[in-house]
Amino acid sequence: MSHALFDFAAERLEQHSSLDRLEARGTLRIALKIVGLDLATLSGEQLAVVFEQVLPGELEKRGVEGAASICRTVLKEVASAPEAAAADRIEDAEKIFRRLGRD
């Protein structure tokens, strides 16, 4: 379940930053929304883009120091987590629709 991946990433973000649980989860949710991602089908690859391209800016907006470094650290931990491997196996609507069309 990708909720597990989200929970894991939010927990690590809380641990490595000055954000509390609610702030960490809320900020991560906002970042996912910006990229157009669905919690239910979130994959490790998608989360990597969020942590590399969107979350540093969102954390800076909230006054978190060393945002880029925090994101890199969390991303390393997320990448090796079993939750990420499990999430990558979920087949979302995009994968299905890509397969259904003639390329």
Binding site: V35, G36, L37, E45, E94
Partner: peptide, 13 residues
Amino acid sequence: RSATKRARFGLAD
């Protein structure tokens, strides 16, 4: 709508 957003980040075809 969401796939268009993802496409901007290279996450959707």
